[in-house]
Structures are given as C-alpha cells and as structure tokens.
Design a protein around this nucleic acid. Structure first.
Length: 254
DNA sequence: ATGTCTCACAAAGTGAGA
C-alpha cells in the first residue's frame, strides 16, 4: 500500500499536474492541502475519472483539504472535533483498515503574531484528536503540511531560521509530543540524503539553490512502523512549469 | 533583494497569505 501527501497550492491551478503525477505514481491514498476551493467547485468528476474515490473539505480562497483513495474511505471526519474553526484544515478517513488523517497545519506567520496563537491552539486540539484516534484505530497515519521543521537537519540554514516560524521550540515541542505519543517520523526511519527538503520558497531562486525546509511529513503509529518499506520526497513535480512550492511525500507499507 | 505565486476585489493594480 502506498500513501502520499501533497500541498498543491491551489487545486484549480494544479489539477492537471496532480492527475499526471497520479498516473505516474498510482498511490492508494493521496491527501491534498491548500486546495483553495469551495466544495461546490471541487473537481470530483475529473478525479473519479482517474480511478479515485474522493472526499473533500474546502473553503473560499484559502486552506482546503482532500482525501483521494483507490478504495472507499469510511468514517470521514472533517476538521478537529470540539475545535470550532472556520478554516478547513483536516480530513480523516479509514482506507483498507488504515486510519488516514490528512492535515494542513496553520502557518503561524511569526512567533509574536495572532496567527501563531491560533497555531498553538490548533496544535493543542490536534493532540487531543490524535490521542482519541490512536485509541480507536489500530493502524494510523498522519500526513500533511505540518508547517514545522522538526529539527535543524530539516532546515537549509538553521542559524538564520533559529527561533523563526516553523522552527520555534513551541512548534518543535508539539512535533516531539506526537512522537512521544506513539507516532514515528517515517522519513527518518531510513538513511536519507542530507539537505532533503519538501518545500522551497518561490522567491530567491530557492529551489535552484536547494534552500528549503522539510515541513511535509508522514507519521505512522507503532503498529505500522514495522510495515514501512520506504519514505521518500518526490522532487520531480517541483521542476514542472508552474510548480507547487511543495513536493509530494510518499510512503510504502508492506 | 521587500526577490514569487495565488486569490479576490467591483480590479484594469493592490493587499493578504503563504
């Protein structure tokens, strides 16, 4: 079973690229972030024509998530239960016995901003949701754009980024708490090339200079850990014309 | 380099968000 996450930065713009990528990488599950579409505009027919079932949860202009799967997803949850949120950031479903949670974590803007306060509250709510989900599902995968670079090894210039958004002790503390709660960073189960990033700023020729961050992640629970065969970042779509600023992350389970 | 991309407004450039 292969699963993937991709922040497409507008599904309206990136739909052809996403369909091309799926044709070349026929994963069993794909979660999307930043679809930036209201639900009535979601391109369900095109996705179904490509052989996928799909659940979606969006809003106007910003955010928006989706869950594509070869077989039907059940027990769908949209956003974090008990956390009243106008922003569409979470979609969860069970596919072939695996609980799949796709999430677009808040960016947070800057550590002294209101958006950071919101990010912290959202992360608290996510931790509560994860605790409950881990109790009720034997196999669980959390994947998405975390907007957290968990360690300095996930940052092209850790000195410049020290204490900056995506790298604050508070954000990293939340990531660590997920690991202590029984999840594993699948990417780090394997030897990886140094300077492996999942996001590069559109500005400053960042991709050409490989100046990026690893902020897109796939975490698995302990029951799945031994089934993880590989976890890779697919940089190819970042080389496309009109690319997303994020690359897909793909995991293979035995 | 405040360096780009995306969306929306009542636009024909500008601001917000990332």
């Amino acid at each position: 079973m292969r699963l993937a996450t991709w922040n497409v930065n507008s599904l309206n713009v990136r739909l052809p690229q996403m369909l091309d990528w799926l044709a070349a990488n026929p994963v069993d599950v794909l979660v999307l972030q930043e679809t930036k579409l209201t639900d009535d505009k979601f391109p369900a027919a095109e996705i179904e024509a490509a052989g996928y079932q799909v659940q979606w949860f969006g809003q106007k202009t910003y955010n928006g998530v989706a869950l594509l799967s070869r077989s039907a997803a059940t027990d769908i949850i949209k956003n974090l239960p008990g956390f009243d949120d106008p922003q569409a950031r979470v979609i969860a479903g069970t596919v072939a016995g695996v609980r799949c949670i796709g999430a677009y974590f808040p960016n947070g803007q800057a550590p002294d901003s209101d958006k950071f306060t919101y990010k912290m509250a959202w992360l608290d709510a996510l931790q509560r949701f994860l605790s409950a989900e881990l109790q009720t599902h034997e196999k669980l995968v959390l994947m998405g754009d975390f907007n957290i670079a968990p360690t300095d090894a996930d940052v092209y210039d850790p000195v410049a980024w020290a204490g900056q958004i995506h790298c604050t002790p508070q954000e990293r503390g939340h990531f660590q708490a997920m690991l202590e709660g029984g999840l594993v960073d699948a990417f780090r189960l394997f030897e990886q090339a140094p300077k492996s990033w999942s996001w590069w700023d559109y500005r400053n020729l960042a991709f050409r200079k490989n100046q990026g961050l690893r902020i897109d992640h796939i975490l698995v629970n302990s029951a799945l850990k031994n089934q993880v065969k590989s976890c890779v970042i697919d940089k190819l779509p970042r080389k496309n014309e009109r690319p997303s600023d994020h690359a897909p992350v793909v995991i293979e389970l035995a």
